[in-house]
Amino acid sequence: MFEARLMNATILKKILDAVKDLLNEGTFDCSDSGIQLQAMDNSHVSLVSLTLRSDSFDKFRCDRNLSMGMNLGTMAKILKCANNDDTVTIKAQDNADTVTFMFESQNHEKVSDYEMKLMNLDQEHLGIPDTDYSCVVRMPSMEFARICRDLAQFSESMVICCTKEGVKFSASGDLGSANVKLAQTSNVDKEEEAVIIEMQEPVTLTFACRYLNAFTKATPLCNQVQLSMSADVPLVVEYRISDLGHIRYYLAPKIEE
């Protein structure tokens, strides 16, 4: 028996919004420790890694490890049927071929349940090595979303250059070029507005704007985003999900031919 309950549907809705542009389907691995989803997009350029810790759910029971392959488009449709302040309970029997989403209104007067067929997904799991990144940038997530949106008008790809002075985002194409420089915040009044750079070595990497823009769909989950970069390895874009866990996106850099 698997059962996980959250007092508020909003977070699950936001999580689905943050993954459904990149993934059509995914396997939710459920265990005592929580729920994990790891899946690459079809082109194997980016990877989504979602972790939700069991102790942050309002109720969590997982008698046996369970892998549930879900169509994320269908899951998003079902979650749209929940009001933001509804309690959500996800339930599945051991070895079941369906999962049930139950929504309960705050006054307990409306209860709805939606059953969804599970899928057998033959997905590859990737081992992601622990990496000491040369540069780790923390910045407001809205600012990152804005930069990705603005620079995508100029080119398919964006160069991110990080030094100890700051981080520079650049795009250049037929229309012209764009550069946005952010300096490290000198005095932090509000932590969520700060730009903080931890640099071991300067890094310059090029990434496809399309994927970066897809990652920014997670912006409503967290005020801050963390970018971790090292030369010639995938970028990690991380959004914390309050005290529930995190969503990390990995993106392969563009490489010299």
Partner: peptide, 14 residues
């Protein structure tokens, strides 16, 4: 010129 890398060349399948 640059080409798009794939994650398979960085991370191993387990």
């Amino acid at each position: 010129s640059q080409t798009q890398g794939r994650l398979d060349s960085f991370f191993k399948v387990i």
